[in-house]
């Protein structure tokens, strides 16, 4: 036994980097909404980057530790406290037996990640620990965490064990923190970069301009499946029928009401609405940190720039990895 859920909060689920290879059967990918924060949380405690961790949404989640355990909290700043004291995030910390970790309110961002050293001891379903909420599979019994659920942690590797021993011995936090600024943006008004979607040219001239010039607001209908946006309506130059076809994380669809929907981690595998744009992969984690009512400016960039941005972020993750390894020596 390691962690007991005292309060489930708004939505707390176990997610890794997703369930791949089965979209042709209609099995959705799921996985963390903010993949960079999940990866860094795992790196910080010595786990594999794609290990499952807790994804905490906005507020209310409260967890009690039944053993000493090294953890890392990353992602949005949800006012995390341990036994009432503000706790350091974006660095490995040692939580003592009996302590209570609480997420009180979303100060910055929307989703926090808690990685346990040794990972989470739950079986993989179809190759992943991610929770597929609608089908009721994966994660913790296929569902969001509830009060009194007990999460078992896995066995720590050599790295995690040495971290544990070091933190145990010094009996104080490390002084360093990962600088996440260049990786994830936690601001609530954001410029999100977009490349043209496959049906961009099917929209009328006004819509094509409006989409990149006017801000759109994230509505309260924003969850792991998709973000419904509100703003100047977008319309097609002329009506046409689109057959269902593959979609992906960040695809921006426009249904007949003209209000764009951004497909997120729990999106369906295929969709039949015209796609005006596609959020670049490098900006998806920042998008995951927006709360309802946040404002988004969509900025058009080229496909090649999007690829460059993604490679740049990967370089930042690499630097973080090297930095952490260096600090442990």
């Amino acid at each position: 036994m390691t962690v007991r859920v005292l309060n489930k909060g708004l939505l707390t689920s176990i997610q890794d980097l997703g369930r791949y290879g089965l979209q042709k059967y209609g099995v959705i990918v799921s996985g963390a909404m903010d993949k960079y924060s999940l990866r860094v949380a795992n790196i910080l405690v010595g786990n594999k980057e794609n290990e499952g961790a807790l994804e905490i949404t906005l507020l209310g989640t409260s967890l009690q530790f039944e053993n000493d355990r090294v953890i890392a909290i990353t992602g949005g700043d949800l006012f995390a406290t341990i036994d009432g004291e503000r706790v350091a995030t974006w660095r490995p910390i040692l939580v003592r037996k009996g302590s209570i970790l609480q997420f009180k309110s979303p100060l910055k961002g929307c989703r926090a990640y808690v990685a346990l050293a040794g990972g989470i001891a739950i079986p993989e379903v179809m190759g992943s620990k991610s929770t597929y909420l609608r089908a009721g599979i994966g994660g913790f019994n296929g569902r969001a965490l509830q009060k009194d659920d007990v999460i078992e942690s896995g066995v720590m590797n050599k790295f995690s064990t040495s971290l544990f021993n070091k933190l145990d011995k010094r009996n104080a936090d490390f002084k360093w923190t990962v600088n996440y600024d260049a990786l994830v943006n936690l601001q609530q008004t954001q410029t999100i970069r977009v490349i043209r979607g496959t049906e961009f040219n099917r929209f009328d001239e006004k819509s094509k301009r409006t989409f990149f010039n006017e801000p759109y607001t994230l509505t309260t209908q924003a969850d792991r499946m998709g973000y419904r946006m509100e703003g100047p309506p977008l319309s097609l130059a002329e009506k046409f029928e689109l057959l269902s076809e593959g979609v992906t994380h960040g695809t921006i669809q426009v249904p007949p009401n003209g209000q764009p929907i951004i497909l997120m981690a729990d999106r369906q595998t295929t969709g039949g609405y015209p796609k005006i744009g596609q959020i670049i992969s490098a900006d998806l984690p920042s998008l995951a940190q927006l709360q309802p009512t946040a404002k988004i400016h969509f900025k058009q960039i080229s496909h090649e720039e999007a690829e460059t941005e993604l490679l740049k972020k990967e370089q930042i993750i690499n630097e973080i990895k090297i930095g952490i390894r260096f600090k442990r020596l």
């Binding site: 290879g21 089965l22 979209q23 076809e245 593959g246 992906t248 295929t270 490679l311």
Partner: peptide, 18 residues
């Protein structure tokens, strides 16, 4: 290569650009 998703008249190929 990550995976492929066939549709009526096209196929989507998901890949990891990194």
């Amino acid at each position: 290569f990550v995976e492929s998703v066939p549709a009526f008249n096209n196929i989507t190929i998901h890949y990891d650009p990194v």
